[in-house]
Write a protein that binds this DNA or RNA. Structure first.
Lengths: 129, 129
DNA sequence: CAGCATCCACATAGATACTG
DNA sequence: CAGTATCTATGTGGATGCTG
C-alpha cells in the first residue's frame, strides 16, 4: 500500500445516485438511524413537510433497495414500523464524511437552513463516538 | 468522546443534495480528481454519454458551488481547462466511503454496470494510499 | 474547440382527497 | 393509522443545430 493506486469502480454509484438523489431518502435513513424505529406518521413529523405520497414512494424504494425494513402488525388501529437494515446502517455511516464536509462550507445556506429547517429533527445526525 | 453523542446538522445536506443529486456532478468531480485538469471535450469523453448542454450546465453549477475551477486561455482554437478546487478535492474524499459502501452491495447492478459503463473512466476512482 | 439556444421527455415532489 | 389515487408543477437531462 505504498503509493499504490487502487481503482474503485464508480459504477455502483449509479445505484447510489438513484438512492441519494432522492431528496428525502437520506433524511429518512438518518431519521431511522437516530430513532431506531418509526411509524409512518412518526416519520412524517420527523421529516417535517413531506407529503404522504412522497414518503410512501420513497419508503418503498428504500425497502426495495434493502436499506430499510418494514414490519406491519395486524392490529386495530394498524401499526407499521420502519427501521434500518444493516445495509441502511452502513449507508448512514458512509454519508457522515459527506455531512462533515458539507458542514465545513456552509456559506449562504446558513440563513436558509436556520429559517426553514430549524427544529426539524431529521436534519440532525446523532453520532455515537 | 466516550459514548458521547454529537449532533451534526443535516441542514447543509440541503446544499449537498442539490450538488450530488445531479446525475453527473460526482462523476465530474471524480474525473477531475483522477486527471487533475481536463478540457470540455476531454470531460465529454471521460464521462461517456453526457450531452454538451448537461455538461455545460453542471460545470457552471459546480463552479458556482466553488468545487471546480475554470481557466480559459485566449488562444485559437480556444482552450479551457477545468480542475478541482480544494473544496472539490475534499468533496471527492468525502464520497469515497459512500463509494466503498456501494461497492460492497452490488446486486443486480453488476450486469448493467459492466454492459453499460465498462471502460468509462470517470466511473473509476483512483485513490492514492 | 467550447460552448449556447431551443425543444422535448421523463422523473420527482407536492396538494388534495379518499380508503382498508 | 397507514397509506393510495389523481393531478399538477418543477427540474433534470437528452437531441439537435448554431456560434464566437
Amino acid at each position: 500500500m505504498n503509493g499504490e493506486v487502487s481503482h474503485i469502480c464508480f459504477c455502483p454509484l449509479e445505484g447510489v445516485i438513484d438512492v441519494i438523489s432522492k431528496k428525502w431518502a437520506l433524511l429518512i435513513v438518518n431519521a431511522l438511524g437516530n430513532r431506531e424505529r418509526l411509524r409512518f406518521n412518526g416519520l412524517m413529523e420527523e421529516l417535517g413537510g413531506i407529503s404522504p405520497k412522497t414518503l410512501s414512494d420513497t419508503l418503498k424504494e428504500l425497502q426495495a433497495e434493502g436499506l430499510i425494513k418494514r414490519e406491519s402488525f395486524a392490529e386495530i388501529p394498524p401499526r407499521v414500523e420502519y427501521s434500518l437494515t444493516q445495509d441502511g446502517v452502513e449507508l448512514r455511516k458512509a454519508i457522515v464524511p459527506l455531512l462533515k464536509w458539507a458542514a465545513t462550507r456552509e456559506h449562504g445556506n446558513k440563513e436558509r437552513c436556520a429559517s426553514t429547517y430549524r427544529g426539524v429533527r431529521a436534519h440532525r445526525i446523532e453520532e455515537k463516538a
